[in-house]
Design a protein around this nucleic acid. Structure first.
Length: 339
DNA sequence: TGTCACGCTAC
RNA sequence: CUUGUAGCGUGACA
């Protein structure tokens, strides 16, 4: 079995940096600056490692992550060529529905392992472009940041006297991302035509249902390696709008809390922000789950802030979840040892 | 440094 | 057997 290192080294020749004065012919296309970064040896190496490490299930073509290295060894040169010539077409995603904790269901969109590999390579580049531009109070899906840090900041706001919170929840956030808004926003710090075109093709790749594909005019697939960073690019617009209004907030994916000093201010913010999100971002605010309330009445990322703003409490929901898990675990191990 | 489990948050 | 992805955390091993 060939090691991952050996494999990618043979996949990508050192010549992927443009050679000066290289004559253009039909067999070699000069990569655009961003495509060169996506297709660089080191970046592809990291991407392949990540996809294999996840050990995820196959997409519509049935190819497993263990089969991917062998497939790439045979087909990567032509795929790479298609990517450079902008003729590559991603496969539609596979639809799998999984239950959510609150009783609902979550539609996953599982790309083929090849597309997960390419998306991962793109995601690593996009993340580089955007990480420093993202708002400091955006905590979800970002390296070096955690839910704990988001909650700690909320606690600090409450301690400083902002004892009211606007708790915003967006409806089916990933599934309703507006493609035009996303692409326009993406162009700001990733101004590369070929790469943007490829990303747009991933957005429009569709979902395979039986034998035909269903269009995806909106949304990013829940299950694509690229989706989290794209989600942050969309909501980056919200972050800087909040900043412009001098509001204190913490956001983790679509879960956003804004800390204000009075109920009145909270109501005002809720109304105007709902309009901004629906008009400008083209997203829907979930009015059932959103609310203006005191921080100690709401749970945020599995925690609730205590009344004095000095302590963090693990939310009741998280406690009961843990308890049932422990019960199940002890019952199961007991059963096994008896049998 | 690197590999492998497990847990939590989010979609 | 079915279930994808990102981030963080704990532990183990070398």
């Amino acid at each position: 079995m060939a090691s991952a290192k050996q494999l990618t080294l043979s996949l990508v020749k050192p010549g992927d940096e443009p050679v000066a004065g290289n004559r253009e012919d039909s067999h070699s296309v000069q990569p655009s600056p961003w495509m060169a970064r996506v297709l660089s040896r080191d970046n592809l190496n990291r991407a392949l490692k990540q996809v294999r490490r996840n050990k995820g299930a196959p997409g519509i073509d049935g190819m497993t992550v263990d089969e991917l290295p062998d497939y790439l060894r045979r087909h990567w040169p032509e795929i790479r060529q298609q990517l450079l010539q902008q003729t590559y077409r991603p496969k539609p995603v596979r639809r799998v529905t999984i239950p959510k904790a609150n009783g609902g269901s979550r539609p996953l969109g599982i790309p083929t392992v090849l597309d997960r590999f390419i998306q991962q390579a793109i995601a690593q580049v996009i993340q580089q472009d955007w990480e420093l531009r993202f708002h400091p109070r955006s905590y979800g899906f970002r390296p070096g940041r955690s839910a704990h840090q988001a909650v700690r900041y909320g606690q600090q706001c409450a301690r400083e006297g902002r004892n009211w919170v606007v708790d915003l929840d967006l409806e089916a956030f990933f599934d309703r991302v507006n493609h035009d808004r996303l692409m326009a926003r993406l162009k700001r710090h990733t101004p590369d035509k070929p790469l943007l075109r490829l990303i747009n093709r991933y957005l429009k790749a569709g979902v395979q249902i039986d034998h035909h594909k269903e269009l995806t005019p909106e949304g990013v697939p829940q299950g694509g390696p690229l989706s989290p960073v794209l989600a942050n690019v969309v909501l980056d617009e919200l972050d800087w709008e909040l900043e412009r209004r001098n509001l204190k907030f913490a956001r983790y994916a679509d879960d956003c809390q804004i800390y204000v000093g009075s109920r009145c201010a909270g109501e005002r913010v809720m109304v105007s922000l709902t309009r901004f999100i629906e008009d400008s971002l083209r997203l829907t605010v979930n009015t059932r789950k959103s609310a203006v309330d005191r921080p100690w009445n709401r749970s945020f990322l599995g925690f609730t802030l205590s009344r004095k703003g000095q302590r963090l409490k693990v939310a009741d929901k998280a406690i009961t979840k843990l308890k049932t898990q422990i019960r199940n675990l002890s019952r199961r191990t007991r059963g096994h040892s008896l049998a």
